[in-house]
């Protein structure tokens, strides 16, 4: 549980008075055969994956979704508006974090029971905002964007990648290349994945800079980080874990996109084992 004094979870003025417009939403899913007929109490809980900045539902469909479904988990992944094959690309310049939360909430209502929510990077922030209004079965935050706001990373970004920093500051999408996302992936595959990245909403990106007042939650929380992450630093991971009073799980030797990088099996088994044990 976090001790941070949070803003109101009850009064959602902007959602009430200016609700998000509905948009076509891409939801990828695999439900293992016979799962729906098993007794609710004993069957594996559904998993809902939320992608990060500029990604799409496809990043989960590559490796993790088939592997988890093979083990009996019904798996779902949503492309946030303006991402993947979802609609709303033209409105991306007017899209806020709360619109993404709306997309995830809509997806949740289509899942037959309360899912474990797995969020990656910016998706981890969205997952926490969702858990702020909905009680999931569990909350897994993988290489989470900083809960304390990413503003503190700016000086280092300016120093190391001045062009990228300038682009972000004027509202461009943070440039992500193979060197940022992967540690041990062959060049062709890495290039193929990077090629699939889209644009990000400038407003959502600015919102990532600000601190997030989130929690407490009533469900189990898992925080996974990697020391070889070149997008999210260790401070962001420790701070997130501290907010929920848990110890982060560190997985060395894998890059930021741990669902695509070589060695993706390890983090997946950490998540699934945690679900089996705690959720």
């Amino acid at each position: 549980m976090t001790s941070r004094r949070k803003s109101s979870t009850v009064m959602r003025m902007w959602d009430w008075s200016v609700p998000p417009v509905s948009t076509h939403r891409e939801v990828l899913s695999i439900v293992p055969e016979g799962w729906i007929d098993q007794p609710r109490a004993s069957r594996k809980p559904p998993i809902l994956f939320i992608h990060g900045l500029a990604h799409g539902a496809w990043c989960w469909a590559e490796r993790w979704m088939p592997a988890a479904a093979e083990l009996g988990f019904p798996v779902y992944a949503v492309s946030l508006r303006g991402h993947g094959d979802s609609g709303g690309r033209k409105r991306l310049g007017r899209t806020l974090m709360r619109h993404y939360v709306h997309d995830v909430m809509q997806t949740i209502t289509e899942i037959p029971q309360q899912p474990v929510i797995v969020g990656h990077s910016m998706g981890a922030i969205i997952a926490q905002l969702v858990a702020d209004r909905y009680q999931p079965r569990g909350l897994a935050l993988l290489t989470p964007a900083p809960i304390q706001g990413a503003a503190y990373t700016l000086p280092r970004l300016i120093q190391r990648r001045p062009a990228a920093a300038a682009k972000v500051l004027v509202g461009g999408t943070l440039p992500l290349g193979p060197e940022q996302l992967f540690c041990n992936l062959d060049e062709t595959t890495a290039a193929m994945y990077v090629d699939r990245l889209g644009r990000e909403s400038p407003w959502a990106q600015y919102e990532l800079m600000l601190p997030h007042r989130i929690g407490p939650v009533r469900c189990p929380v898992l925080v996974v980080g990697t020391p070889d992450d070149r997008v999210v630093d260790e401070r962001a991971v420790t701070e997130t874990a501290r907010a929920y009073g848990v110890d982060p799980v560190w997985l060395p030797g894998i890059g930021h996109d741990l669902m695509l990088d070589g060695g993706w099996e390890k983090p997946l088994s950490v998540v699934l084992d945690w679900i089996d044990e705690r959720c």
């Binding site: 959602r12 509905s22 948009t23 939403r25 709306h102 909430m105 809509q106 949740i108 209502t109 289509e110 209004r133 909905y134 009680q135």
Partner: peptide, 9 residues
Amino acid sequence: FPDFPMPDS
């Protein structure tokens, strides 16, 4: 219900 919105449809 805030934790279970009505469908967009």
